[in-house]
Simulated scan of single mutants.
Amino acid sequence: MLTKIQALGQTLGFSQIAVAPLDLSSAEPHLQNWLSQNFHGSMDYMARHGMKRARPAELVPGTLSVLTARMNYLPRDTAEGWQEAEWLRLRNPAEAVVSVYARGRDYHKVLRNRLDTLAQQIDALLADALKPHGFEYRAFTDSAPVLEAELATRSGQGWRGKHSLVLNREAGSMFFLGEIFLNVALPASEPITAHCGECTACIDVCPTRAIIAPGLVDARRCISYLTIEHDGSIDEALRPLMGNHIYGCDDCQLICPWNKFAQASSLPDFDVRSGLVGQDMARLLAWSETEFLRYTEGSPIRRIGHVRWLRNLAVAAGNALRHVDEAAIDRAELRQALQACLSHPSEVVREHVHWALAR
Results as ranks from 00 to 15, higher is better:
Gln6Ala: 09
Leu8His: 00
Gln10Pro: 00
Gly13Thr: 09
Gly13Pro: 08
Ala27Phe: 04
Asn33Ala: 11
Trp34Cys: 02
Leu35Thr: 04
Asn38Thr: 04
Asp44Tyr: 06
Tyr45Gly: 03
His49Gly: 09
Gly50Gln: 03
Met51Ile: 02
Leu59Trp: 06
Gly62His: 06
Leu67Trp: 07
Ala69Tyr: 05
Trp82Tyr: 14
Leu88Asn: 11
Tyr101Trp: 10
Ala102Asp: 11
Gly104Phe: 03
Asn113Glu: 12
Leu115Glu: 13
Asp116Trp: 00
Thr117Phe: 01
Thr117Trp: 01
Ala119Lys: 04
Gln121Gly: 02
Ala124Val: 05
Ala127Ser: 14
Ala139Ser: 15
Phe140Gly: 07
Asp142Gly: 11
Val146Leu: 07
Leu151Tyr: 00
Ala152Asn: 04
Gly156Val: 07
Gln157Tyr: 01
Gly161Arg: 00
Ala171Val: 01
Ser173Thr: 03
Phe176Asn: 08
Leu177Gln: 00
Leu177Phe: 01
Gly178Thr: 05
Gly178Ser: 09
Val184His: 14
Val184Lys: 05
Glu190Asp: 09
Ala194Ser: 15
Gly197Phe: 12
Gly197Pro: 07
Asp204Pro: 06
Pro207Gly: 09
Thr208Arg: 15
Ala210Ile: 01
Ile212Cys: 07
Ala213Tyr: 04
Leu216Val: 13
Asp218Phe: 08
Arg220Ser: 11
Arg221Thr: 10
Arg221Trp: 04
Ser224Gln: 02
Ile228Phe: 08
Gly232His: 08
Ser233Leu: 15
Ser233Gly: 13
Ile255Ala: 06
Asn259Glu: 05
Phe261Pro: 02
Phe261Thr: 10
Ala262Asp: 04
Ala264Tyr: 05
Ser266Trp: 14
Asp269Ile: 06
Phe270Glu: 10
Leu276Met: 14
Gln279Ser: 14
Asp280Cys: 10
Met281Trp: 02
Leu285Asp: 10
Glu297Ala: 10
Arg302Leu: 09
His306Ser: 13
Asn312Cys: 12
Ala314Tyr: 07
Ala317Trp: 12
Ala320Val: 03
Val324His: 04
Ala327Met: 01
Ala332Ile: 12
Gln336Cys: 15
His344Cys: 02
Glu347Trp: 15
Val349Gly: 09
Val353Leu: 05
